[in-house]
């Protein structure tokens, strides 16, 4: 069943078309990949889907249209994301980082918090920390963490609100091979928790290894979609992106 449906998504920056009429679907419980050369419009597509960039076209999640919602409402509707640069909240501990994302405060909550601070959602936080196997880092500050755990914490923060779908923007950037393996294992667990994934990354091994379906973007257009083995053999994809048959693609 289709979870995320993107129809005719188009983003223009001052005359330049960054994303050009993209149609894309992510089925429920799936790990979908989005790849493409630098400047293909992958991050812009994520920004547009999550509401950070104004875009023409339609985005719906589980049949619910999201087009008019601002980013935080889309997040609350079950569409979570991470950032390429992670953007963990530096002055908050790992646990607090997650608590921010799990909380759904009403605006009047701010009035009472000066007198009786609300404790915050500890159950969801514990669950997400354990799902990503970073529970022992709960009290650390993000700046104290090595690169690998930081990436896992960023994903934990994205899934702590139990979204239907999480969009991951280059989660393996800067990770070594062992860390990437840990990441891949963590990603494979997400569908069992009821969370579908749209994964953007440069690491072909990771993308082709964990994804059920892969979309390829080039110069703002979708040039191929399908299972990894089909996409890997696609002529257009090879010319546009891979240049040559992938060397590392058979790993993982």
């Amino acid at each position: 069943m289709t979870l995320l449906a993107v129809r005719g998504l188009t983003v223009r920056y001052e005359g330049l078309v960054a994303v050009d009429g993209v149609d894309l679907e992510v089925p429920e419980g799936a790990i979908a990949g989005l790849i493409g050369p630098n400047g293909a419009g992958k991050s812009t597509l994520i920004d547009a889907v999550t509401g950070f960039t104004p875009a023409a076209g339609h985005v719906s999640l589980a049949g619910r249209a999201l087009d008019d919602l601002p980013p935080h409402r889309r997040a609350r509707a079950g569409l979570a994301r991470t950032f390429q640069s992670l953007e963990l909240f530096d002055d908050l501990t790992v646990e607090e980082n997650l608590a921010v994302a799990a909380a759904r405060p009403a605006w009047w909550g701010a009035l009472g918090d000066g007198f009786r601070p609300s404790p915050g959602p500890s159950g969801a936080v514990r669950w997400a920390l354990e799902a990503l196997e970073v529970a022992e880092l709960a009290d650390a500050l993000p700046s104290e963490l090595p690169n690998g755990p930081r990436h896992l914490v960023a994903i934990a923060r994205a899934v702590v609100g139990r979204p239907r779908l999480v969009l991951l923007d280059e989660p393996a950037a800067g990770l070594d091979e062992r860390e990437t393996d840990l990441l891949a294992a963590a990603l494979r667990r997400l569908p069992d928790l009821g969370i579908a994934v749209l994964l953007v990354d440069h690491d072909m091994g990771l993308v082709l290894g964990v994804c059920d379906v892969v979309h390829v973007l080039d110069v703002g257009r979708l040039i191929a979609s399908g299972p990894p083995e089909v996409v890997r053999a696609d002529e257009a994809v090879i010319t546009a992106y891979l240049g040559a048959p992938p060397e590392r693609g058979d790993g993982t």
Binding site: F52, L92, A110, P117, G120
Partner: peptide, 22 residues
Amino acid sequence: SETGRGWLAVRANERAAAAAGI
């Protein structure tokens, strides 16, 4: 409190805070 954590999140990065549902 929840409010203060949200504030610090906004201070750190508004886009990330919005992505976290704030």
